[in-house]
Write a protein that binds this DNA or RNA. Structure first.
Length: 364
DNA sequence: GAACCGTGGTC
DNA sequence: TGACCAAGGTT
């Protein structure tokens, strides 16, 4: 039986259209969701009014390629500090970037702020349709569909990595990614219900996060196991089929700790590129694609202060640290003296936060 | 399409 | 322990 085909024998009271296998999938999943939905801070609780679009949007952007566990504290901090989208829009760039520090993929923070300003200047209300949402900065196909469905009840087809995995298994789609995305999206469209599309999307994601995970399918507790083609084949974890990963090259670079009377010299990285727009230690120009030059920003009596290793998406960086503590004038170029005692408030991304930690640990 | 962009949890 | 992976978007 193909997806979407009418079930031969109607097992429920007649509706305006035939009951299909797709309807059964949605109904079974929603029933499971009603019992097993995770209690997450950005979700409306039963009995609550409709979810706040600002909180839905903020959570969805934070959750892009990021785990629920990592997002929770950032979501609490952002919503506490900026309760409405107009508050976030009015914040300073450096405040928003610093508040995002540690969460990664910093282009999200820039786009988040740009989106908040766009919404605020348009009256402070988020658009309600998928197409209008898609036009906002930082909102791609997934996030626009998720907000339309979850915050506004639109029937939108929400496809993230969880949905991709669950759908690929349900229908044993064995085309390798990314080519499989065409068939996966079509199948997701067929099983997405007209009503409760937002709950359906969140149910698929909860299922993918807690039951049908990448490493383990846990079919014994899956509400969709009876109709799952991958389970019938006996190899659910084999779906979706993924291409081989490329190895990450090892890169070397240097970073420089320049200190003067209890303050350290920090720079702000260019808006584009790795760690774009974030405060940082001066470095020797390393990138994900090539080693640094090894050259310090000026001639001085540089002393080695250890190194830190840090994995990025495309490279594994070993950053050696060099210190000057008797600097007198300002180093060349733009920068600011930041009190060492308050280095934790500088909003350094994790790489440089660890570098600072290493330098300060070595001074004791 | 494919490259680029972070980080922390998990096993 | 290191390899894999996560509620993707932009260029």
């Amino acid at each position: 039986m193909k997806v979407g085909d009418p079930v031969p024998l109607c097992r429920r009271p007649c509706h305006s259209r035939a009951v299909t296998a797709s309807d059964d999938i949605a109904a079974g999943l929603l029933a499971w969701y009603d019992r097993h939905a995770r209690d997450l801070p950005w979700r409306a609780r039963p009995g609550d009014p409709a979810p706040d679009p600002y909180r839905v949007w903020l959570s969805e952007v934070m959750l892009q390629q990021t785990t629920v566990a990592a997002v929770k504290s950032y979501f609490a901090a952002f919503t506490s500090r900026w309760p409405r989208v107009t508050d976030l829009a009015a914040a300073g760039d450096d405040e928003v970037m610093a508040a995002w520090a540690g969460l990664g993929y910093y282009a999200r923070a820039r786009n988040l702020h740009a989106c908040a300003r766009a919404v605020a200047s348009a009256g402070g209300e988020f658009p309600r349709t998928e197409a209008e949402l898609r036009a906002l900065p930082g909102l791609g196909a997934y996030t626009a569909a998720a907000i339309a469905a979850i915050a506004f009840g639109e029937r939108a087809v929400v496809v993230d990595a969880n949905v991709e995995r669950v759908v690929a298994r349900l229908f044993a789609i064995d085309t390798p990614l990314p080519a499989a995305r065409i068939a996966i999206r079509a199948a997701a469209d067929r099983i997405t219900p007209e009503r409760r599309a937002g709950d359906f999307a969140q149910a698929m994601m909860d299922l993918g996060a807690t039951v049908c995970t990448a490493r383990s399918a846990r079919c014994l507790v899956c509400p969709l196991a009876a109709g799952c083609a991958a389970r019938a084949r006996g190899t659910p974890e084999a779906f979706p089929v993924k291409p081989a990963k490329k190895p990450r090259p090892a890169r070397r670079g240097r970073a420089f700790w320049i200190e003067r009377s209890g303050a350290v010299w920090l720079v702000t990285r260019p808006a584009r590129g790795m760690l774009g727009g974030m405060r940082a230690l001066p470095d020797d120009g390393w990138t994900a694609g090539r080693d640094g030059s090894g050259e310090p920003p000026f001639a001085a009596d540089w002393r080695p202060a250890g190194q830190v290793s840090h994995g990025f998406t495309h490279a594994e960086l070993t950053l050696s640290l060099w210190v000057v503590t008797d600097q007198v004038g300002d180093p060349p170029g733009q920068g600011e003296w930041w009190p060492v005692a308050r280095i934790g408030e500088a909003g350094l991304p994790t790489l440089f936060a660890r570098a600072a930690e290493r330098v300060l640990a070595g001074k004791k």
